[in-house]
């Protein structure tokens, strides 16, 4: 059963051809990592999935809604598809608790007490219960990202998108974030992760997609084989740079 389907999707920024003929189907419960050099269109691809970017042609079906159709209500998609950003995007004017409960109370119309209880559970899950009343400015990068993940989970999404979740973090805090992500993956969440963390891609991902210049060049379910013997020359070049780095 598919969660996300791209059929012949094209995306332009003015004259710049950002996504070229994308065909990709992601099943429910699948953990897909997307890798590739900067500017290859990974983030753009991810952002189209919850409607932060519009596609110009082709078909993009997420949770049975067609995102290429202008009549589709994007807010309904976003309720069901969470997003974790590179720069966290926590609400600077709200406490950690409010960051997590605002979505459920405003969008899902949950009652406040219930939202609060669930937020506390999520805070336990990411190991930051004691930060409930802090403001984001008082947290480290890794803590912010764990809160951002909790915020997404509070919406009980059918899929979670991660846009380079560890790229802006200090190395010593990356591990905590990856642990939380692994945890979520184990619980059977559909995840699409754009990352430079090859360890995560190799050991947690069910499947790996390699992108370059707006195209999907490789789409491998045998993740180990991809890392050991990439078929595509550009993938070979990219991996050698990353690993030697």
């Amino acid at each position: 059963m598919s969660m996300i389907e791209f059929h012949d999707v094209e995306k332009y920024y003015g004259k710049f051809h950002a996504l070229k003929d994308i065909n990709l189907t992601i099943d429910r419960g699948e953990v897909v990592t997307i890798i590739g050099p900067s500017g290859s269109g990974k983030s753009t691809l991810l952002r189209t999935i919850n409607g932060l970017e519009r596609v110009q042609s082709g078909q993009l079906i997420v949770n049975d809604f067609d995102l290429a159709d202008k009549k589709t209500d994007m807010n309904r998609i976003r309720k069901n598809v969470g997003m974790v950003f590179q720069h966290f995007n926590l609400y600077a004017n709200k406490t950690v608790m409010e960051n997590i409960t605002l979505g459920p109370t405003l969008v899902l119309k949950s009652n406040k007490e219930q939202a609060r209880e669930e937020a506390l559970k999520l805070l336990d899950q990411v190991g930051l219960r004691e930060k409930a009343d802090s403001y984001p400015s008082a947290l480290s990068g890794g803590q912010k990202q764990r809160i951002a993940i909790a915020r997404s989970l509070a919406m009980k999404p059918k899929a979670l998108l991660f846009d380079e979740p560890t790229s802006a973090l200090d190395p010593e805090t990356i591990g905590d974030v990856l642990d939380v992500m692994k945890d979520i993956a184990k619980q059977g969440m559909t995840m699409v992760v754009v990352t430079h963390e090859m360890g995560f891609a190799r050991h947690v991902g069910d499947r790996i997609v390699f992108m370059s210049d707006g195209e999907i060049l490789e789409d491998a379910t045998d993740v180990g084989a991809f890392f050991d013997h990439p078929k595509e020359p550009r993938a070979q070049e990219f991996l050698s740079k990353i690993i030697n780095h």
């Binding site: 919850n50 932060l52 309720k79 995007n89 609400y91 951002a148």
Partner: peptide, 27 residues
Amino acid sequence: VAVGQMEGARSVGMTYTQAMVNIVFPQ
């Protein structure tokens, strides 16, 4: 106010107005 604040709010399904009123305006 950083673009990310609006995106963060929209990503949990808030409408434009909800995001403006709750997140962007107060900042």
